[in-house]
Every structure is written in structure tokens, then in C-alpha cells.
């Protein structure tokens, strides 16, 4: 009887494991375009957006999850849960939001929520199966936040694909991103214009174990 129960549980666990969705996280500094990438993926494969985007930093202040997304490339299918995370920063100053014509009370609220968002994003790192690190390719890639995120993913043995976003902009420098992180695959894209997105999908297939 016990054997039968054990057998049933084992079979149940196998079925459960096989149905376990891959957790694909979008990480990076604020305003790199994580939510734009999330929206592009969701629009392409579900026909709907996932997150709101804004020019004001820390628009995403809580983790957003889109479950059971299926993407296709080169005749293959990949199903995963997508996690759009708040941008990781070492400083949050509510006065920075005032520059975007935000009211003081609103700015303070946003700053408070943003700090919580960073903490949540850090806590969720351990739960990811693979991560797309989204960087703004017009910015210097040698920032400590970028190095810390990628260093932590390496330490946890989580596969990484670096997305050098905003390649449509004049200042974009994909080669500099590649030079900064030579041991990781880097794909330049424009989430806004959809440039090179198919290449990104192909690369996602490569990093998912």
C-alpha cells in the first residue's frame, strides 16, 4: 500500500515537474527598457502589453508576471513565465522625480515604492531559471549595478543573456556592451522599433537549459 502511494506520488511529481514553467526574469538598471522588452514579447506572442512604460525612472515598482508565454523560433517552441522586475539602483532620491514635474507627495510615494521594488527584485533573483539583463546601450555599461547584477547571476549559476536595448538611438554602442561583458552573449535590439527582436528570441532558446 505504502509502495503504491509512493509510486503515485513519484508519478505525480514527475508530471508536476514536467509542467513546471521556466522562470525568465528581466533585470537591469532603471530606464534600460525592461518593461518595453516585456511588452514587445507579450505583444508578439499574446497580442497584449504587460507593463506600463514611462520616461520617469522607476515606473515598474513591483514585480509583474505573465504566465505561460510561448515563443517560437526556428521551428522550436519555448514556454515560460516572464517576470518584469523593478530596476535595481543604489540610490533613490525623491527630488529626482520632481524634475519630471511630479508633485512632492507623489514623488515621495514613488521613491518609497521604488525602494521596496528594488528589495523585491533582489529577493526574487534566487527564483529565476534564466535572466535577460537589459542594458541601455547608449549608457556606459561599466556601472557597478550592472556588474553586481551579472556577478550575482554568475555566482548563482543562472544563465544570462544581455539585451543591449535602444540600438536605434545614435549614441547606442553595442560593441562597448560586448567589450564590458565578453563572457556573455549580447544581442542589440530596439524594443521600441522591434529591431533585431527575432535574434533575441533565437538567443533566448540558446540560454534556456
Amino acid at each position: 500500500m505504502i509502495k503504491a502511494i509512493k509510486g503515485f506520488l513519484q508519478k505525480f511529481s514527475i508530471i508536476f515537474k514536467s509542467k513546471k514553467q521556466i522562470r525568465l526574469g528581466l533585470y537591469g538598471p532603471p530606464n534600460a527598457g525592461k518593461s518595453s522588452i516585456a511588452n514587445k514579447i507579450c505583444t508578439d506572442w499574446l497580442g497584449e502589453e504587460m507593463s506600463t512604460i514611462s520616461a520617469i525612472p522607476h515606473e515598474t515598482r513591483e514585480i509583474k508576471i505573465k504566465e505561460k508565454l510561448t515563443i517560437k523560433a526556428n521551428g522550436k517552441e519555448l514556454s515560460f513565465n516572464l517576470y518584469d522586475t523593478p530596476g535595481i539602483a543604489t540610490r533613490i532620491d525623491y527630488e529626482d522625480f520632481l524634475k519630471h514635474k511630479m508633485k512632492r507627495t507623489e514623488a515621495k510615494k514613488r521613491a518609497k515604492e521604488a525602494t521596496k521594488g528594488v528589495i523585491d527584485a533582489i529577493k526574487w533573483l534566487d527564483n529565476m531559471d534564466c535572466v535577460l539583463v537589459v542594458l541601455d546601450s547608449t549608457q556606459n555599461p561599466y556601472s557597478q549595478v550592472n556588474i553586481t547584477i551579472i556577478g550575482n547571476l554568475a555566482a548563482r549559476d543562472i544563465p544570462v543573456l544581455i539585451i543591449a536595448n535602444k540600438m536605434d538611438l545614435k549614441k547606442s554602442n553595442i560593441k562597448k556592451v560586448q567589450a564590458a561583458f565578453p563572457q556573455y552573449p549580447v544581442v542589440g535590439v530596439s524594443a521600441l522599433k522591434g529591431d533585431n527582436i527575432n535574434k533575441m528570441y533565437e538567443e533566448i532558446f540558446k540560454i534556456v537549459k
Binding site: 539602483a89 543604489t90 528589495i119 533582489i122 533573483l125 553586481t148 556577478g151 555566482a155
Partner: peptide, 11 residues
């Protein structure tokens, strides 16, 4: 690396 991220979290 985990100490760096702990420092950000504490911050």
C-alpha cells in the same frame, strides 16, 4: 557579489 547585493538591499 552577494555582499554587494546585500549592501544595495540594506541601502
Amino acid at each position: 557579489p552577494n555582499e554587494e547585493i546585500m549592501l544595495i538591499q540594506k541601502t
